[in-house]
């Protein structure tokens, strides 16, 4: 009954992993220890693949673990297990919001929620900037000029200009351009 077990294990992960794909990682580490379905090293490979393929990381991880454990049915069952709790909870929350959308209390709560949500996204942006354009090891050794990744910064400038000039273009075009530039200039 490995499929049932897979569903249950990923249902648990989906229920308790709060705050994004990598929040599933501690649960998967535990799963590897208790079930022996995959090793810690395999788990690291799965993280690498999940991060370098399209799709939400948590979903990719579930599919990968499910496939490794029980083939294609395993991939489908693990993914369904992961998303079931959040679908149920979000549907309940959405219904609640609809019912109280004219309430002054709910409006006031959202007045605080929106700037905070914007700030959380801005914080993600700052960590993306550090991750993509800054080399801490080179900064410690050789200072500011060496630490900045100039090729990456230049590409970012070109793409930014592109998004301003071609406002109607689909974002996927810029992702594709980024991928092409990454290969051509060995970023």
């Amino acid at each position: 009954m490995i499929l049932l077990r897979l569903f249950f294990e990923f249902f648990k992960t989906g229920l308790f992993a709060i705050g994004g794909g990598l929040a599933t990682l501690p649960f998967l580490r535990e799963m590897s220890e208790t079930t022996g379905w995959f090793t810690q090293t395999e788990l690291l490979d799965m993280v690498a693949v999940s991060e370098s393929t399209p799709g939400p990381i948590g979903v990719n991880m579930a599919t990968y673990v499910g496939f490794t454990t029980a083939g294609i049915p395993g991939a489908v069952i693990a993914t369904l297990g992961l998303i079931t709790p959040s679908v149920i909870i979000v549907l309940i929350v959405a219904g609640f919001l609809k019912r109280f959308k004219d309430s002054k209390v709910v409006a006031a709560v959202f007045g605080g929620l929106r700037p905070a949500s914007t700030a959380l996204i801005a914080a993600v942006l700052l960590s993306l900037v550090v991750m993509n354009f800054w080399n801490q090891t080179l900064f410690d050794a050789q200072g500011l000029f060496a630490a900045l990744k100039w090729k990456h910064l230049l590409l970012a400038g070109v793409i930014f200009a592109g998004t301003k000039v071609f406002k109607k273009w689909h974002p996927a075009i810029f992702l594709l351009a980024g991928a092409a530039a990454g290969i051509v200039f060995s970023l």
């Binding site: 991060e51 370098s52 942006l125 993306l128 900037v129 991750m131 993509n132 354009f133 990456h152 590409l155 970012a156 793409i159 930014f160 998004t163 974002p171 810029f174 992702l175 351009a177 980024g178 991928a179 092409a180 530039a181 990454g182 290969i183 200039f185 060995s186 970023l187």
Partner: peptide, 13 residues
């Protein structure tokens, strides 16, 4: 390399 470039594009978006 492709993902390194994609991450730059994602940052801009």
């Amino acid at each position: 390399h492709a993902f390194s470039g994609i991450r730059v594009a994602v940052t801009v978006l």
